[in-house]
């Protein structure tokens, strides 16, 4: 599932449509509200910005290893995958359909968060998506998030990911509420230098998120690895109840007590007992997983 192969095909570099095509069983995908329906943003034209016909998200149904699923893929190259009114409504609609159909959902995240040009509509959309996610999960339906896109998964997108039943990430995937530039703008370059890419990955990158239990599965930056990861994630328990939430609360309290004063990702890894923490970013996937499996904080269904 995670061994690099000479035929590796980068998930990070693929388009949203390309990722869907490789993730799902060949020919199984049917798009809802495709580009020919022209359900694009009514707001962007006001700012003399070009719209995209699918508003940067593709939704539909398909099969994953023979299992029927609903799927959504964000296109991180269009406005950083940001969530506007229509983009959000398509995802909300898909999640509501999943609840009615009792069908698991796979979300291919690639987003900087709310689309600033549609701020209020975008914020509302995030809330609606979160509500729809939780209502869908309350019915025992899984909502799986895949994190390995160019734009990462930031802002409101990260909050949605936090509500998923399981998350799959690659080293290239980044998951954080505030992005590097946002932190630097608000707190200063002394607090966070957004151009220090190594710092960004130590703080928000896939390896760090996996080690602290923020995600459930770590895979190579490869379309086949993401497919295998999604299949594995769909095998995990779907429960969302009070016991799960209480366990998550306790886990987060432990995390805060254990790592709350750590100043850097590498310091967190050292406290986890990872040998030679400074070398973690250089480890290949199998070497990393060998260490991570015994040292990482466990994730759970509530995240």
């Amino acid at each position: 599932m995670t061994s690099p192969s000479p035929t590796r095909h980068s998930w990070y570099e693929e388009s949203a449509r390309g990722r869907l095509a490789h993730l799902l069983d060949p020919g199984s995908f049917t798009e809802f509200l495709g580009p020919e329906r022209r359900e694009f943003s009514p707001h962007l034209g006001l700012f003399n910005l070009p719209h995209q016909l699918d508003d940067g998200i593709i939704v539909g149904n398909g099969k994953l290893d023979g299992r029927p699923v609903l799927a959504a893929a964000q296109e991180g190259r269009f406005m950083g995958g940001a969530i506007g009114e229509v983009h959000g409504a398509k995802l909300t609609g898909l999640l509501r359909a999943a609840r009615q159909m009792k069908r698991d959902v796979v979300i291919l995240f690639d987003t900087g968060g709310v689309r600033l040009q549609e701020a209020n509509a975008g914020e509302l959309a995030i809330s609606e998506i979160i509500r729809a996610t939780l209502e869908t999960r309350a019915e025992g339906v899984r909502v799986i998030g895949l994190l390995g896109g160019r734009a990462g998964c930031y802002g409101g997108g990260s909050l949605i990911a936090g509500c998923c039943s399981a998350l799959v990430i690659s080293e290239q995937g980044r998951l954080s509420v505030s992005g590097p530039e946002v932190i630097e703008t608000n707190k200063g370059v002394e607090e966070f230098d957004s151009r220090d890419r190594a710092l960004v990955w130590r703080t928000m990158g896939g390896k760090h998120r996996y080690l602290i239990g923020g995600v459930d599965l770590f895979v190579d930056d490869d379309v086949a690895a993401f497919r295998a990861g999604a299949v594995a994630a769909l095998e995990r328990p779907a429960a969302l109840n009070q016991a799960v939430l209480a366990a998550e609360q306790a886990r987060l309290e432990r995390r805060l007590a254990r790592f709350g004063d750590a100043a850097d990702g590498a310091e967190v890894w050292a406290r986890l007992g990872v040998p030679h923490p400074a070398t973690v970013p250089d480890l290949d996937t199998s070497a990393f997983l060998t260490i991570a499996t015994s040292k990482r904080e466990g994730a759970d269904a509530a995240r």
Binding site: S15, R17, G34, P35, E36, N48, L49, P50, H51, Q52, L53, D54, E75, R77, F78, M79
Partner: peptide
């Protein structure tokens, strides 16, 4: 559909429906 709306890129949607000797192209550019 090919391409995406990103810097230095474009999306192109192709549909049928014009006369066989004619091609109509609508462009929106900032």
């Amino acid at each position: 559909l090919v391409g995406v709306v990103a810097s230095g890129n474009l999306e192109v949607l192709l549909e049928r429906g014009e006369a066989p000797d004619r091609c109509v192209i609508d462009i929106a550019t900032p």
